[in-house]
């Protein structure tokens, strides 16, 4: 298109009269391709809009039956009873407890692995460990769920004899193992991004590796490490199959991890497994639960990415 305005030798135009036509068709083709690629990029935006639309649409219908006040203050979640009560608190509590147990495992172990791989490990160990951690993160969550139910729970029952077959402790512990690679890889990236000159300065002052790692590199990478934790929390909150399989699916308003309980995600699975008719309050309730989950993870994700970007800009 721009070529039309360009001054050019008249002789050339006469010699090749099709030149302009070719360029025109080529430009059209270019524009069409750009449009197609743009539409492909727009699919991701459409996905988000679709998620937000469907969650709000069905939740609105749900909140026409259930007052918002009850939803947030009631401590019973019994949607399948003849007198259903819809208080999100027990599900939130289950999510909170399982996530807390998971983070008690994943944060210390993930952080130590990150510091070790970034500051201590010889090159060969790091090269071998990173793909292995990736594999650990690639194991399907249903397999972790099976592991929690069939291996970890019986093991825990030997230590705590009164432990029920479904409990949040076992689900949380296994979930922690699942999140370790996630936390360690983001935290390690943050630590590797700390410039070498800071470490060299520290070593030049006579500091040991441990001192350099804990007093120089870790504080310098702290926002990236915090981002790793926050993204880990988001993962734990949204994890479904481990809790659905190993924690039992009964809503239970308790902070005792040794008890069975349901989480937001496990409840959605439970309803989907039964056959509630489309359009019933029970059907709508999973969208209300999903909306809570979506908003919760959204807050953590935005916070996490904001912190992650912050450390990138620091150097």
């Amino acid at each position: 298109m721009a070529t039309v305005d360009l001054p050019r030798p008249a002789a050339m135009a006469i010699a090749d009269p099709d030149r302009l036509k070719h360029k025109f068709s080529r430009n059209i083709k270019e524009r069409i391709i750009e449009m197609i690629l743009f539409l492909a990029a727009l699919v991701s935006v459409a996905t988000t809009l679709g998620i937000v639309f469907i969650l709000f649409y069905e939740s609105l219908a749900f909140f026409r039956h259930v007052p918002l006040v009850d939803f947030f203050t009631d401590t019973m979640w019994t949607p399948l009873f003849s007198e259903p009560r819809y208080g999100i608190a027990p599900l939130l509590m289950g999510t909170l407890v399982t996530s807390a147990v998971a983070l008690c495992v994943a944060i210390p172990v993930g952080t130590v692995i990150a510091i070790y791989l970034s500051e201590f490990a010889p090159f060969s160990v790091r090269e071998a460990a990173k793909p292995f951690l990736e594999l650990l993160g690639g194991v399907p969550t249903i397999v972790y769920g099976y592991f929690a139910l069939v291996f970890v729970t019986p093991l825990l029952q030997k230590v705590f004899p009164g432990l029920p077959g479904f409990n949040m402790l076992s689900a949380g512990l296994v979930m922690g193992v699942m999140i370790i690679p996630y936390i360690s890889s983001v935290a390690e990236d943050a630590m590797r991004a700390v410039p070498m000159s800071l470490r060299e300065g520290s070593y030049a002052m006579g500091a040991t590796r441990f001192q350099t790692a804990t007093r120089v590199v870790t504080p310098a990478a702290i926002s990236g490490i915090a981002a790793a934790y926050i993204l880990g929390i988001s993962r734990a909150v949204g994890e479904t199959m481990i809790v659905a399989v190993a924690a039992g699916m009964q809503p239970n308003f308790t902070i005792n991890p040794a008890e069975p309980a349901s989480t937001i995600t496990a409840y959605i699975v439970q309803v989907a497994l039964g056959d509630l008719p489309h359009g019933s309050v029970g059907y709508q309730s999973i969208f209300a639960a999903g909306l809570m989950l979506f908003l919760l993870t959204l807050v953590f994700n935005i916070l996490g990415h904001w912190m992650r970007r912050k450390y990138r800009e620091a150097y």
């Binding site: 990029a41 727009l42 991701s44 935006v45 996905t47 988000t48 679709g50 998620i51 469907i54 969650l55 649409y57 069905e58 993204l231 988001s234 909150v237 949204g238 994890e239 479904t240 995600t265 959605i268 699975v269 989907a272 999973i286 969208f287 999903g290 989950l293 979506f294 993870t297 959204l298 953590f300 994700n301 935005i302 996490g304 990415h305």
Partner: peptide, 22 residues
Amino acid sequence: IEINVTNLAGVPSIVYGLLALG
């Protein structure tokens, strides 16, 4: 679009299930 892709990566998989169901 960029912010959106980053956020989509963190959406729990079960929420995609709800999107598909609805």
